[in-house]
Write a protein that binds this DNA or RNA. Sequence first.
RNA 1: GGAGAGAUGGCCGAGUGGUCGAAGGCACUCCCCUGCUAAGGGAGCAUAGGGCCAAAAUCUCUAUCGAGGGUUCGACUCCCUCUCUCUCCGCCA
Length: 423
Amino acid sequence: MLDPKRLRNDVEEVAQQLARRGFKLDVARIQSLESQRRELQSTTQELQNQRTLRSKAIGQAKARGEDIQPLLAEVDGLGERLVQSEQALNALQDQIQAIALMIPNILDSTVPDGKDENDNVEVRRWGVPRQFEFTPKDHVDLGAPNGWMDFEAGSKLTGSRFVVLRTAMAKLHRALIQFMLNTHTEQHGYNEVYVPYMVNADSLRGTGQLPKFEEDLFKLNNEQGYYLIPTSEVPVTNLVRDEIIPEKDLPLRFTCHTPCFRSEAGSYGKDTRGLVRQHQFEKVEMIWVVKPEESWQALETMTSHAEAILQALELPYRVLALCAGDTGFSAAKTYDLEVWLPGQQKYREISSCSNTLDFQARRMMARYRSEGGKPELVHTLNGSGLAVGRTLVAILENYQESDGRVQIPKVLQPYMNGAEYLA
RNA sequence: GGAGAGAUGGCCGAGUGGUCGAAGGCACUCCCCUGCUAAGGGAGCAUAGGGCCAAAAUCUCUAUCGAGGGUUCGACUCCCUCUCUCUCCGCCA
């Protein structure tokens, strides 16, 4: 959520900023609702003040044993006017709040202009795509024939966009998770957390998935209306919701492995083949909670931690600065990491690292208190480190050999009983 | 699933219809005192929003004692619903 003060005082400026994303802010409507709110709030508060004063007078009169009838008569009608005024004010504030929750974050000035993913700007590259002396297969052709990846079983058990991994593939998948978590906790200084895979609407509102993106989520049909998490960013970031963190405890750095569930509504026909776009996938996430002045450095550091995983796996990648039109709702700036997939002859997204500034913190009321100071909003960041399914894809395709065998990356071999090849 | 207890400020904990944003204690901040190291004295110490202002502070108003409704001139105090926590029984990985 944006600072309501900014929304009140610099609507034009905010609207101009948001236009970079292609978001149209209804300035006239906001201004009109705001001026109504201001007036209504003043009269409501004045009526409330009247009520308090009169009630106190009655209390005092009664304590002195005086007749309170005349005073009661004086109050007559005040209650009804107050109720009406309060109701109108609440309705108006709900309207304003509903609008505010639908407004995306303001982009950082360093975010490149642009409309969609074609306008993203490459920042750097690491590694050189391997030259194959044969035509590299894609991961489906490598994994499906020998039963490592069973898409038929996935669709039988559930439906499309689900998969069953078997034997060495299931184990490599697990090895990747262990490797990523161990690296982040042992080398990058993260605290590992285990969290619920179902969350309530408050949590999703806090990180910005609700109210705008409900169709992307799986909602449970239980009484509480829980949702399956689309990313561990939601439960992990919400750990600090409604909290005031002592300054000395910052920065908080969490890493967490969870499955992620996404409806993929609107992506019909996109990546229908293979593991790349599933309704359920595993992800190791990195979350930072920092003081405002540290968040931009944190974004760079966090991105480098995601890169470190790709480097350790010796997978070629590039880093993109997402353009204005492609940056997500809550983010002020995002770097995407794209890994090279020989089967597609393309770089494909495998991590996304974002600084949301105080956008999520304001929705969550997540604050910190400096020594003797007032509580202030923290800044929150999140990044994948990495998407496990896609990393598996990248390993298969990059480490394949002409006979169809797949080498195991050096750093993963200890997790695979020292094996050099998938068997 | 059944029975019971509870939810108050950073923490503990009073408060059962009126002047309570809330006693007291702890923690914390500042000052004083003290040569002695979990000693004493004093002051301060919730959050959010509105108004005022160029802005901030001050000032002022409002809201908040788990959440939402209700009763009342007035609710932390009474009534209803819900959520969460704890205890016991049952069931269970």
